[in-house]
Simulated assay, not measured.
Amino acid sequence: MIPRPLSQLLWRTLAVACVALGMIGVVLPGLPTVPFLLVAAWAGGKGWPQLEAWLLAHPRYGASIRQWRERGAVPRRAKWAASGMMTLSAVVLLLSPLALWLRVAVPMAMACVAVWLWMRPEA
């Protein structure tokens, strides 16, 4: 069993890393923001309740985090953006010189994620 101070430090480290990745995602096209903030809120709930509360109350991203927690909801705009990025990634991957199995397996995995994503309720 991990001692409480170490456990809290690990949860906080994960939360801060995910907030940092989310902030990078705000300015870097193709890197999602909200999924990282979802993980940050989850990790914050385990080791940093103040950060979790701040994320849930955030004026721009708090509603998305709360909707995910309450209903597993994903906004339609986010579904379209994710689907578009996965399609673009699949096309680039298919045109790359990688092994055939990789050029087929990764787009298939992305297709499964897209189906799962579109089956989620909308915000």
Score class of each variant (00 low, 15 high):
V16Q: 01
L21W: 02
A123N: 02
T87C: 14
R120L: 09
C18D: 12
A114Y: 04
P97E: 00
P75V: 06
T87K: 11
P32A: 13
L28D: 08
R60G: 06
L56D: 07
V104S: 08
S7P: 03
R69F: 02
A114R: 09
V74F: 08
T87I: 14
L51S: 01
G84W: 08
T13A: 13
V74Y: 11
G62E: 12
L51Y: 01
L37K: 06
A78M: 14
Q67F: 10
E52K: 14
A105W: 07
C18V: 02
R12I: 00
G62I: 09
A40M: 01
A78K: 10
R4P: 13
P59F: 04
H58A: 10
P3W: 03
G22W: 11
G22L: 04
W11C: 11
R4Y: 00
A82Y: 07
A99D: 14
Q50K: 15
A53W: 02
L102Y: 06
Q50E: 15
V91W: 11
W101C: 08
R66K: 14
P35H: 03
T87W: 12
P75A: 05
A63Y: 00
H58D: 13
A82G: 05
Q50D: 14
W80N: 06
S64E: 02
P75Q: 07
P49T: 03
M23K: 02
A90L: 07
S96F: 02
P32C: 08
L38F: 12
W101V: 13
S96D: 03
V91G: 10
A99C: 03
Q8H: 09
M108I: 13
T87P: 01
M108Q: 04
P32S: 15
G45Q: 06
R66E: 10
L117R: 03
L38M: 15
L98V: 08
K79I: 07
Q8P: 01
R71S: 10
H58Y: 06
A90I: 06
A17Q: 04
A17N: 01
A17P: 04
V16K: 05
A15M: 11
M85P: 04
L88P: 04
P75K: 00
G47E: 06
S96M: 07
L102S: 07
R76Y: 04
R69H: 09
P49K: 02
T33K: 00
A73V: 04
A99V: 06
L31W: 09
L117S: 05
R120V: 05
V106G: 05
Y61H: 07
A114I: 01
M119R: 14
R69T: 06
W42G: 00
L51H: 01
R71I: 01
P49Q: 11
M110E: 04
A81N: 08
L9I: 09
R66D: 02
M108G: 08
A90T: 10
P121A: 06
V104K: 00
A73E: 00
P32T: 12
W101I: 12
W80R: 11
W101F: 09
A114G: 10
L55P: 05
F36G: 11
M1D: 12
L14S: 03
A20T: 15
F36I: 07
S7W: 13
R120C: 08
L6C: 06
A73T: 01
V34Y: 00
A43K: 05
A123R: 12
V39Y: 07
E70A: 12
S64G: 11
G22A: 01
S7C: 12
A82F: 12
A123C: 05
V115R: 14
M110W: 15
A43F: 02
P49M: 03
P107Q: 09
A123T: 00
Q67P: 00
R103M: 09
